[in-house]
């Protein structure tokens, strides 16, 4: 909690796509990850990294391996080989709980919210603030919820209503606030805009900007190439379980990225990976 509060103070530096500092140790460094289900190499020698305050979009066909790769990071799958480094230290992630301990949180497409209770109750579900009487301290929880939501989504007012009454974008911000309260440093967002209208998609974009300010790194899995170009600092494209290549978003065009996804053709602006089409 306090660390995220402190980190607001240093948002003096400008946050534009190109301003991510990639010189230090990456937040996440996944190296040569492989996993096979039966005879199928779902992920084959894939390496990706993520820096503080950076949004890395993972792109590819269905079955390209991006979801599997990211589920290895979130602890849902166990890798067959390869290494994961969190803040430079080798991490052993065997289950979702391990991942949480490293500050890796996943925002599910379904958001996994409890629809019947309000935003504060959702934020604190499972770790409620209690009074000295052993009863729920709703006031304290609402106060904390107001603080966090004030940072992420200053227009949010509907603290008293069950979250099922909220809009898709508002629900998304509740889910993200919940992850942040869990001290998340790395967020995995699986199709965050898939269920949302244009206005709410814009809201999520604002949300992601706020998260970047707080030095949180985000892996974004998306099918919507426009979203990817609006939101991400870097794109990583996968095909047949291998990384085709990665590029800073401003160095490539949408057509080039589509070429990477469909053909595996790596454009000049991108760093080719093992899955790049051989000339």
């Amino acid at each position: 909690m306090s660390t995220t509060m402190d980190s607001i103070a240093d948002h003096g530096r400008a946050h534009h796509h190109s301003d991510v500092d990639r010189t230090g140790t990456p937040l996440i460094d996944m190296r040569d990850i492989s996993i096979a289900f039966g005879g199928i190499h779902a992920v084959d020698q894939a390496s990706i990294d993520l820096y503080k305050g950076e949004v890395v979009a993972l792109l590819g066909h269905n079955g390209a391996g991006k979801s599997t790769l990211i589920k290895i990071l979130s602890g849902a799958y166990k890798r067959d080989s390869g290494e994961i480094f969190v803040r430079g230290e080798k991490a052993s992630i065997g289950n979702p709980r391990d991942a949480k301990a490293y500050g890796i949180e996943t925002i599910y497409q379904t958001l996994a919210l409890a629809d019947n209770v309000d935003a504060a109750a959702n934020l604190f579900l499972g770790r409620e603030i209690m009074t000295s009487w052993g009863t729920l301290d709703d006031g304290a929880m609402e106060a904390e919820a107001r603080k966090v939501m004030g940072r992420l989504n200053p227009n949010f007012r509907r603290f008293k209503e069950p979250v099922k009454a909220l809009s898709g974008g508002q629900r998304q911000s509740v889910a993200i606030a919940r992850a942040i309260l869990f001290n998340a440093k790395i967020l995995i967002m699986d199709e965050p805009t898939a269920a949302l209208g244009p206005q709410e998609t814009a809201q999520v974009a604002d949300l992601i900007k706020e998260l970047k300010k707080e030095d949180i790194g985000i892996f974004l899995i998306s099918h919507d190439i426009h979203d990817v170009f609006d939101l991400s600092d870097r794109v990583v494209v996968m095909k047949n379980g291998q990384v085709v290549g990665s590029a800073r978003t401003e160095d490539v065009t949408k057509d080039e990225v589509l070429g990477m996804i469909i053909l595996g053709k790596c454009p000049p602006g991108a760093t080719p990976g093992p899955g790049a089409m051989k000339e």
């Binding site: 066909h61 269905n62 079955g63 979801s67 589920k71 979130s74 849902a76 799958y77 979702p96 996943t106 599910y108 497409q109 379904t110 996994a112 699986d190 199709e191 898939a194 899995i221 099918h223 919507d224 190439i225 426009h226 589509l258 996804i261 469909i262």
Partner: peptide, 22 residues
């Protein structure tokens, strides 16, 4: 496989690219 939560994720949609398909 994620504790029943990832239901309806990107694995279930048709293979899509670009705007129309998205």
């Amino acid at each position: 496989g994620h504790a029943g939560r990832g239901r309806g994720g990107n694995l279930h949609g048709p293979p899509v690219l670009g705007d129309q398909c998205a």
